[in-house]
C-alpha cells in the first residue's frame, strides 16, 4: 500500500487500485496496464501461478520481493515478469523500475541476476560467454552503464544481452504439460532435430 504514494508521485503513472489477492484484483479493480505483485501473498498462492493469471488478464507484472531468497526469485523469474525489485530498495529505485515497467521495459536488478547466476541449471543453458559475463557483472551489483564500460560495449548491446538471458532462462524452465509439448519445446530450443520431410 505504501506503493500507492510512490505511484501517485509520478505524473506519468496512474494508481488504479490494490487488492489482497489476484482473484480480489480481478473482482474489484478495473483494467490495468501493470500490476505490482508481492512475491508472497497472504492467501498462500504461488507467485508463478499469480503471474500467469495476471498475464492472462492482460496486464504486465513487476514483482516486489524481500530479496533474501534466491530460490523464490528464480521461481518467479520463470514466469513472464518484467522485473523483480527488492522492497527495501530506495523508493526512487522502485519508482524508476515501476515507470520503466509501465513503459513495457524490462528491469534487471542485482537480486535477479545473482539468483540466476547461481542457478545450477544456468550451466547447461545455451548462453554465450559474453552473456554469462554480463549476468555475473549484474549479479555483482554493477549497473548497465558500468557493465557497458567494463566490457567496452554500448548500453543497447547490454540490453540485448539481458533480453536474451531472460528469454533463455524463461525457456529452460518453461513447463511442458505433455510429452508432445516437451518434444516441441526441445525442437524450438534447438536441443532436438526438427522433423524432416520425406
Amino acid at each position: 500500500m505504501a506503493v500507492r504514494g510512490l505511484v501517485e508521485s509520478d505524473a506519468a503513472l496512474e494508481f488504479v487500485g490494490h487488492a489482497e489477492s489476484v482473484s480480489d484484483l480481478f473482482r474489484r479493480v478495473g483494467p490495468a496496464d501493470l500490476v505490482i505483485l508481492d512475491l508472497r501473498l497472504r492467501d498462500g498462492s504461488e507467485a508463478v501461478h499469480n503471474v500467469e493469471r495476471i498475464r492472462g488478464w492482460g496486464a504486465q507484472v513487476i514483482v516486489l520481493t524481500s530479496g533474501e531468497d534466491p530460490y523464490l526469485i528464480r521461481e518467479v523469474s520463470r514466469a513472464d515478469v518484467l522485473g523483480i525489485v527488492r522492497k527495501s530498495a530506495p523508493p526512487a529505485t522502485i519508482l524508476a523500475a515501476i515507470a520503466a515497467a509501465a513503459r513495457g521495459e524490462s528491469i534487471a536488478t542485482a537480486e535477479w541476476a545473482a539468483a540466476l547466476d547461481t542457478d545450477p541449471d544456468i550451466e547447461g543453458a545455451p548462453l554465450t560467454a559474453r552473456e554469462r559475463e554480463v549476468l555475473a557483472l549484474y549479479a555483482s551489483g554493477l549497473g548497465a552503464k558500468q557493465v557497458a564500460t567494463r566490457l567496452g560495449l554500448s548500453e543497447n548491446t547490454i540490453d540485448d544481452h539481458l533480453r536474451r538471458i531472460r528469454a533463455v532462462y524463461h525457456a529452460i524452465h518453461r513447463p511442458a504439460n505433455t510429452k508432445v509439448e516437451l518434444y516441441q519445446r526441445g525442437v524450438e530450443d534447438g536441443f532436438l532435430p526438427g522433423p524432416t520431410a520425406g
Partner: peptide, 19 residues
C-alpha cells in the same frame, strides 16, 4: 485432475511442493 509432466520440470522446480 489435469496433471503435469514431472519429467519436464526439474525436481527443484516444483515450487512450494518441492520445498
Amino acid at each position: 485432475g489435469r496433471g503435469f509432466d514431472t519429467a519436464s520440470i526439474p525436481p527443484d522446480r516444483l515450487g512450494v511442493t518441492a520445498t
